[in-house]
Simulated scan of single mutants.
Amino acid sequence: MSPTNPEKVIRFCPKCGNPEFIYQTDNSFLCTQCKFHLYVNSAAAVAALIVNDKGEILLTRRAVEPQKGMLDLPGGFVDVMETVETALGREIKEELNLEIEESKYFMSYPNEYVFGGISVFTIDLAYICAIKSFNKIDAKDDISSFEFYRPEEIPFNDIGGTSMKAILKAFIKYIQV
């Protein structure tokens, strides 16, 4: 078990502060004092599969930890009370200054995202996205740059996330059929 797993990191009940906040076998914690029950669930995240007119796939470089400098698919976390579709459009606008014209669900893949010394488990939802125009594309927010790759030239060893590698490999098979 990773030292960043919530079982290894979370020590106190967030409701009453009791240090006897016991990890349970159902992926939850139970406070022995106030009986608060906290489940460790997956957080929703979105990823955009964007292809230009040349058939190249858009990848971004992470500007921040975790995995700073590694390649990634553009996207990010779904905010509280936000739809997945809204998050997808917001993230692509924030990171690349692009507007999605159309999106279609492709697949999901689980991931472990280590942030601040704790594992945040995500379910990454990938969408195939058509972009209105690439004219104003610009690297912003938490990405340092963007790069287009022909599917057969993607440097998979430079991609940080396990889920992003799996999604990209499935997408390449899908577009080559």
Rank of each mutant, 00 (worst) to 15 (best):
L73F: 07
L73M: 02
L73S: 09
L73E: 03
G75Y: 03
G75F: 12
G75P: 00
G75E: 07
G76F: 10
G76P: 00
G76Y: 06
F77I: 13
V78W: 11
V78Y: 00
V78A: 10
V78Q: 01
D79V: 04
D79T: 03
D79E: 13
D79L: 15
V80T: 12
V80W: 02
V80N: 06
M81G: 05
E82T: 15
E82C: 11
E82P: 05
E82Y: 12
E82G: 12
T83Q: 03
T83V: 08
T83H: 01
V84L: 01
V84H: 05
V84G: 01
V84I: 15
E85V: 05
E85W: 06
T86E: 05
T86H: 10
T86M: 05
T86S: 12
T86W: 07
A87I: 14
A87E: 02
A87F: 12
A87V: 13
L88N: 07
L88T: 03
L88I: 06
L88R: 08
L88V: 06
G89K: 14
G89D: 07
R90S: 04
R90E: 01
E91H: 13
E91N: 14
E91L: 15
I92L: 05
I92E: 05
K93G: 01
K93P: 01
K93S: 05
K93L: 07
E94P: 04
E94F: 14
E95H: 10
E95Q: 15
L96Y: 03
L96K: 09
L96E: 01
L96S: 11
L96H: 11
N97C: 13
N97G: 12
N97T: 03
N97A: 15
N97Q: 13
N97I: 02
N97K: 08
N97M: 10
N97R: 11
L98A: 11
L98R: 12
L98G: 10
L98W: 01
L98M: 08
E99F: 07
E99P: 00
E99H: 12
E99M: 09
E99W: 06
I100H: 08
I100F: 07
E101I: 04
E101L: 14
E101H: 07
E102A: 08
E102S: 09
E102R: 14
S103P: 02
S103C: 06
K104T: 13
K104A: 02
K104W: 09
K104Q: 13
K104E: 15
K104L: 07
Y105R: 05
Y105C: 07
Y105V: 05
Y105K: 06
Y105E: 11
F106H: 04
F106Y: 15
M107L: 15
M107E: 10
M107I: 12
M107G: 01
S108Q: 14
S108W: 08
S108K: 12
S108E: 15
Y109S: 13
Y109N: 14
P110R: 10
P110I: 15
P110S: 15
P110C: 09
